[in-house]
């Protein structure tokens, strides 16, 4: 996503310049790595994917803030327990009580977490040049991009791949809709849901299954995967 107005560009630069020098340097490094990222024609088996999930202060993607981030790498068709990321962002004020109940992240923990700038930079570093996959990606993507733009002054970030759109294409003839339904469909062990890392883990497992089946569906590169997902999203909108 590129900045749409000149004003946005200036604002972003102002935000970046206000960051500590050390953070600016880290962002530059992430950006360099991102620009050198492998092409879309890289075979799936060699690509690193990051399954990502956010817990937010509420369901409104334009205003609610990130409470925690969970992410796991998927490489060579395996979910990497040893390549995972989890952080809780320190909040200026804790979210409403009903939301606390959903995510079970208490006000204390919310107020205690990591500095948001630090948390987001670490997250970008963890993602590196990998492709991001999420379930219902639009929501996570919108919130994540907004926070990154507002806090780090970083605009350009690629689209998330939406697993919720891909799965029906790979496993036709089911009426599964939610993450829970898909997890149950594949008989995956129910993990402690509604925590960012747990949902990310469930997402990663589903991604692993999709990647395993991908060659059979003629999907061999990251580009094929993106194309399949886009076609499916387009179909989904028409439906």
């Amino acid at each position: 996503m590129l900045p749409s107005t000149f004003g946005e560009v200036l604002r972003a630069r102002r935000i970046r310049r206000a960051l500590p020098a050390e953070v600016q340097e880290r962002l530059r490094r992430v950006r360099r790595g991102f620009l050198d990222r492998p092409s879309l024609d890289q075979p799936l088996a060699l690509a690193r994917f990051v399954a990502l999930d956010l817990e937010t202060t509420g369901p409104r993607m334009l205003v609610d803030r990130i409470i925690s981030i969970g992410a796991l790498a998927v490489t060579d068709g395996t979910v990497r327990h040893d390549d995972a990321f989890e952080t809780t962002l320190r909040q200026d004020r804790s979210s409403e009580v009903d939301n606390i109940l959903v995510h079970q992240i208490g006000g204390q923990a919310q107020l205690g977490g990591t500095d948001p700038v630090e948390a987001l930079v670490s997250c970008l570093e963890f993602i590196g040049d990998s492709r991001i996959v999420a379930f219902r990606a639009e929501f996570d993507q919108t919130v994540f991009r907004r926070e990154v733009r507002l806090r780090l002054g970083v605009h350009a970030w690629p689209r998330f791949i939406d697993l919720a759109a891909l799965l029906p294409a790979m496993v036709p003839g089911t009426s599964n809709d939610t993450l829970d339904e898909w997890v149950a469909h594949f008989g995956l062990p129910p993990v402690g849901r509604h925590q960012a890392i747990a949902d990310a883990y469930a997402t990663a497992q589903l991604l692993m299954i999709v990647l395993q089946d991908a060659p059979r569906a003629g999907i061999e590169t990251s580009r094929d995967l993106r194309d399949a997902e886009q076609a499916q999203r387009w179909l989904g909108r028409r439906r």
């Binding site: 068709g77 395996t78 979910v79 990497r80 327990h81 040893d82 990663a204 497992q205 692993m208 299954i209 395993q212 089946d213």
Partner: peptide
């Protein structure tokens, strides 16, 4: 072990 394993999926 937990910190070092990966999860893999192998279709039938």
């Amino acid at each position: 072990v937990a910190a070092r394993v990966r999860l893999g999926y192998f279709p039938v």
